[in-house]
Every structure is written in C-alpha cells, then in structure tokens.
Amino acid sequence: MNKTILVTKRLTLAPLNKSDKSLFIELCMDPKVMEHCYDPSTLEEAEAGFEAFSQPWDCNSHDWLCFGITETNTGEKVGNISVKILDHKQHIGEVGFLLNPCKQGKGYAFEALKRVKAFSFDVLNLKKLKAICSTQNTSSIKLLEKSGFIQAAILKNNVVIKGKSIDDYQYEYMR
C-alpha cells in the first residue's frame, strides 16, 4: 500500500517521502497550525513523527497511512492527509489532515478528503470514517460538514493544549 498514489483534478496524494519532510515538520511545529490539535512539536518530536508517519503500511496495520498532498501542476507541497483503520473487524477508520496555512481556503482539503474517503471505502473496504476536531476549530468543522460528515459526539476534555483541557467533536461518515 505504500506505493498507492491518489490523484484528483489538482492534487497528487502520495505516501510520505523525503520531499514531504520539511513541510511536515514545519506544520507540526507551527503554533497556529497546531492550536486546535496538540501542543506544537519540538524539532525532535516532529522528526520522530515524520519517521512514524512514513513507515511501510498495509491493510492490516494499526498505524496511520499518511499521504503528502502536492499541487500536481506546480509540485508545491500543500500538506498531508492520513487514514488509520481503528477497528479491522467493524471496518471503521479515522481521517486527519494538516494544511499549510497559505494553501488553506482554496478547496484543497475538501478535494483531498473526498479522494481519501473514496479510497477508504473502495480500496480499504471501510464502512465508517471518523474524524476528531476541536469544538473551536471552525475551519475543520465546516470542511467535515461540507464533506458529508455528521457530528456524532462531544468528547469532553479530550486533549490538553497549552495546559488547558479542550473539548473535541467526533464526526462520522458512512457511505
């Protein structure tokens, strides 16, 4: 599965490789990008994260399959989007994404998420996808709802960011 390349009208989604490393690290360390996810990573944590997200993956894996998102025409890196199989027996997965702030608002996340949803159902044979986002992350909330995800739960005090407990929404999508 690590050779899987997904293509949309404007984007190429390919498993993380060395060309994605600098943007991956930059996004993980950026306080603005991470403000609704986690505390920003140190350089060492971001590098370790890149190594973990770029490991070989197959359908039996319990880790994330992370795709670097690249503008096909320009070769510019946009961000990354990942899918993880949470429950192999129930065919439930989770998606997550991070975009370069200068690439946000252009429909790239919507386009990438649409393609990863299709891959998740058609190739991975998932029956349900989940996504978790902060109750304060209006951009991700709008994206998930526009993409057909439905708010399924509020996860109270789900993560601690800068010493403060944060509530998250759990969204779900079933085909």
Results as ranks from 00 to 15, higher is better:
175 R>K: 04
19 S>I: 01
167 D>N: 15
105 G>K: 05
145 E>I: 06
57 W>A: 03
149 F>S: 12
87 D>M: 00
10 R>M: 08
15 P>D: 03
14 A>T: 10
154 I>H: 09
85 I>W: 06
11 L>H: 06
80 N>M: 12
38 Y>D: 15
9 K>E: 15
73 N>R: 01
138 T>V: 11
164 K>L: 13
88 H>C: 00
19 S>G: 08
120 S>E: 06
34 M>A: 03
36 H>Y: 14
9 K>S: 15
27 L>Q: 10
138 T>D: 15
130 K>I: 09
145 E>W: 03
114 K>Q: 14
173 Y>S: 11
82 S>L: 07
88 H>N: 01
136 Q>P: 07
15 P>M: 01
88 H>R: 07
79 G>C: 05
27 L>T: 00
43 L>S: 12
75 G>S: 04
64 W>I: 08
150 I>R: 03
11 L>D: 02
84 K>Q: 13
86 L>N: 14
15 P>K: 00
110 F>S: 15
6 L>E: 01
148 G>V: 06
131 A>Y: 09
90 Q>M: 11
145 E>C: 03
8 T>K: 12
12 T>R: 15
113 L>H: 10
39 D>H: 03
88 H>I: 05
41 S>T: 01
94 E>R: 08
19 S>D: 11
66 C>L: 12
4 T>H: 09
59 C>N: 11
84 K>C: 11
108 Y>K: 04
156 K>R: 15
13 L>A: 05
86 L>H: 01
153 A>H: 10
161 I>N: 04
15 P>F: 04
155 L>N: 06
86 L>D: 12
58 D>V: 04
164 K>I: 15
92 I>L: 05
31 P>K: 10
142 K>Y: 00
68 G>E: 02
37 C>L: 14
42 T>L: 10
137 N>Q: 13
72 T>H: 05
90 Q>S: 10
141 I>R: 14
13 L>R: 08
64 W>D: 07
88 H>F: 06
